[in-house]
Structures are given as C-alpha cells and as structure tokens.
Simulated assay, not measured.
Amino acid sequence: MKKIFKILLVVVFIALLGFSGKYLIDSNSKSPIIFTTEKAFKTSIEEKTVATGKVIPEDEVEIKPQVSGIIEKIYVKEGDAIKTGDLIAKVKVVPNEQALNSARGRVQNAQISLANAQQDFNRNKALFDKGVISTQDFQNVKLRYDQAEQEVKNARNDLQIIRQGSTGGAQAITNVRASVAGTILEIPVEKGDQVIQSNNFNDGTTVATIADLTKMIFEGKVDEAEVSKLKINMPLKVSLGAIRDKEFDAKLKFIAPKGNEEQGAVQFKIEGEVFLDDSYFVRAGYSANASIVLDTKNDILAIKEALLQFDKDTEDPYVEVKIGDQEFKRKDIEIGLSDGINVEILSGLTEEDEIKVWNKTEPIKKEPETAQD
C-alpha cells in the first residue's frame, strides 16, 4: 500500500509540474502592450456652456372683458394675425345681482336727494325774487340743486352700464377688441362660457392672448458655477428642437440677480434677444438650447484631454513623457482652458515631448471556432 501511495504522489507531482510549465509558457508567449505617443500642438480653444430653455414672445398680452357676462360670439381663431382695435368677441352682459341692487339703491337715494334739493331751491327762489335773501345764498342753494340733478344722472348711467355694459346701446352686449397688434396665440374660452371682468379683487377671465411673433426671446437657465462668467450683450447661438441644422444669432439681455434651487443645484434665469430669419416661422414655446462662448484663446499649446492623468492623492494633473524605448516618466503640468476635447498647457510641456497614450487597450482576440459535428 505504501508503494502504491508513493507512486500516486509521484504521478500527481509530475502532473502539477506539467500544468505549471504550460502556464509559464503561455504567459511568456503573450505580447506586451506597445504604448504609442502623441505630441502637444498649437490650436484655438473655446470654453462654452449650454443653457436649456425655450423661445417665447417678447411681448404677450392677455385680453380681458370690461364687463362680466356670457360669450355671445368669437370672431377670431388661434393663429390669426390681427390689428389694434379688431373685434375679438362679443359678451352678453349678465348683471351681478349685488352690484345691480346697489346701483338701484344709489339711484333711489339720488332721487330722494334731488327732490329735497328741488324743494329747497323753489323756496329760496321765491325768497330771492322778493329780495329777502342775498344773491350769494341763492347761488349756494342752486349749486346744491344742480349737483343733486347730476348725481341722479350718474347713478342712472351706472345702473345702465351694469345692466347693458354701456350707456349708449339698447342691447346688453359689449365688444371685446384687441388692444395690440400681433398673432392670436390662445383662445381659452368658447361660445357660451361665462367671463368675469378684471377688478381689484380678480384678474378677470382671459378671452384671448396676443403676441408679436416677430420679436422673440430665449429664456433659459444656467448653473451658478458659470453665471459669474456671463455679461450683458454676450453673443449666443440658439438652436431649436423643431428646426434642425439651423442656429439663430442672439444677444444676452438679462441675467437674474437671484437664483432658484432645482434638484440640488442653483439655477439662474437668463434671457436673450433672438434675431430671427424670415425663412423660418418660429412658434412660441419651441424648446431651445443656447450656446454661450465664455472664453476664447487662439494659437495656444494644447494636448488631447484623454492624455491627462490625475494624482490619486492631490488630484493634480500629470502626463507620462517618453525617455526611452517604451520607457516613460511622470511629468507634472499646469493646465488651463478646456473645450472637453483639447486642454491648454500652461507649463510643464513642450512641442517636442512625446506623451504616452496611457489608456490604450489591447484588441479583443476572437476565440477559434470549433467544428460542429
């Protein structure tokens, strides 16, 4: 038994030696990675930021009725171009019961005051004709009478306005007209809808929204890290999601003095005047991106940003420079402007230095296909 056990040990040992030798041979047969190099070069770099937002009309006006009532008829539709004074809709006046009752009471009070003033006037006129009172006293009495007459007229006019919407028409209908020229963007009401006039306690019902689509602005947001680099009148390039392969020139005209926190980041609102092209019809509300050039440098020394490495402890940038055949040494550098592809070299490199392409990967080897039975 001992002899057989020794023989088995010898066989296992020989097998292990065979596997180890094969592993060493296979390991040594693998080709080492051959690192290539690249050199620094002169170029121009632009640092840009992109603000997302939309294009909206510079001036947008909401048309509201002067009286409360029911929409009798609408004369325009969305997309129509209109001029100042054009008829938009007619509103059938439905008097407010509280206001109507108050107006009636005012008329009655005015009539009572007028009747009293008239009696006083008639009595004093008779005394004045007899020379009992002076001219000044009589004129004061006549003034009170005239004021009472005028108050009755005013109260009746107010009552008529509440009933009919105006003092001149016999029908309780009022017209809603455009206060500005432009394009009808939206008509949020329909025939038969009830509308409320604008007053101190209510904004009123919007009958139509009008805007001049020939004057558009870009409205977007930028991050707080970049807002300090923005200046009024900086040029923008605005691209619209609905119009491909076209960029519109724009000019920055507003930067919000206060930011708002959104999803953990502080965003600042910006606005830019967009210079439209007559060949394209730009609709209100198109989504848009504005490209803003924050800084530009020409004829500077740069390398591809992919060549950079960063120290694990200090996070300082460095590259590996060739000193011999497949031999490299670390070289700390100072970097500047970057556009995401190329980065400016402020110090640490020359155009003659050969920089290691450190992230080179080996090509994937294909497994040999096995013959199928």
Rank of each mutant, 00 (worst) to 15 (best):
V11K: 07
V12L: 14
F19P: 00
G21V: 10
T36M: 11
T37M: 08
A40M: 09
P57D: 07
E60N: 08
E72K: 11
K73L: 12
G79P: 06
G85I: 09
I88W: 02
V94G: 02
Q98Y: 12
L100D: 02
Q111N: 14
D129N: 15
Q147M: 09
E151C: 04
I161R: 10
S166T: 13
I173R: 02
L185S: 01
E190Q: 13
D193N: 14
D193T: 08
S198R: 14
D203V: 07
T205P: 00
L213G: 05
K215A: 09
K215Q: 14
M216K: 01
F218G: 00
G220P: 01
D223Y: 01
A225C: 06
K229A: 08
I232R: 10
M234D: 05
P235L: 12
I243D: 00
E247D: 11
F254C: 07
I255K: 01
E262A: 13
A265E: 12
L276G: 02
D277R: 04
A288W: 04
I300W: 04
A302P: 00
Q309D: 10
K312Q: 13
D313V: 11
P317T: 05
E320V: 03
E320K: 07
V321C: 04
Q326I: 07
I341W: 08
V343N: 06
W358Q: 08
E367T: 15
Q372M: 12
